[in-house]
Amino acid sequence: MNTAASYAPRYDRQVGLWLAACAAVIFGMILLGGVTRLTESGLSMVEWRPLMGIIPPLSEGEWQSVFDKYRQFPEYRLVNYGMTLHEFKVIFMYEYLHRVLGRLIGLLFFIPLVYFALRQRIRPGLLPKLLLLFVLGGCQGLLGWYMVQSGLVDRPDVSQYRLTAHFGLAVIIYGFMLWLVLDLLAPPAGTRRSVLAPWALGFVLLVYLMMLSGGFVAGTNAGFSYNTWPLMGPTFIPEGLYRTDPAWLAAFEDVVTIQFNHRIFAYLLTALVLALAVAVLRREPAARVRRGAWLLLAALLLQVVLGISTLLLHVPVPLAAAHQGGAVLLLSCALFLAHGLRRLPAGGLP
Rank of each mutant, 00 (worst) to 15 (best):
A222R: 04
F167Y: 03
T36C: 02
R99H: 01
D12A: 14
L281E: 08
L127K: 04
Y226W: 13
V207R: 00
L17A: 08
P188W: 06
R288T: 10
A320C: 12
V204S: 11
I111P: 01
Y242I: 12
T220P: 00
N80F: 09
H314L: 11
F216E: 00
L281T: 05
L152T: 01
F252D: 02
L281G: 10
W63N: 03
M93W: 10
T84Q: 03
N221M: 13
N221S: 06
V273P: 01
L249V: 06
Q64W: 00
L97K: 12
L133A: 11
V135F: 00
A277I: 03
L196R: 10
A200P: 10
E62C: 00
A279N: 04
I105A: 09
G202S: 12
G34S: 07
V35G: 08
F110T: 14
A189M: 03
C22S: 05
D245A: 14
M45W: 02
E47D: 15
M45R: 02
P318I: 14
L311Q: 08
V181F: 06
R155H: 11
A346K: 09
A277N: 06
V171K: 09
L337R: 14
S150M: 07
L313C: 03
T191L: 08
P246V: 08
V100D: 02
S225D: 08
A189V: 11
M83L: 06
V195G: 09
T39G: 04
I172K: 06
A197P: 05
L341Q: 13
Y76E: 07
L209A: 05
I54N: 07
Y94S: 02
Y226E: 10
Y94Q: 07
G233F: 04
M29F: 01
I122L: 15
Y81S: 11
I122W: 04
F110K: 01
Y70A: 04
T257L: 05
G82H: 06
A24E: 03
L281C: 10
P56S: 15
W145M: 01
L329W: 08
L249W: 03
F224H: 14
L209F: 00
D183M: 14
M52L: 07
L241V: 13
R123T: 04
L296E: 07
L231V: 14
V217A: 00
L43C: 08
A321H: 05
I111Y: 05
A5G: 02
P350W: 01
C333H: 10
L341I: 15
L313I: 06
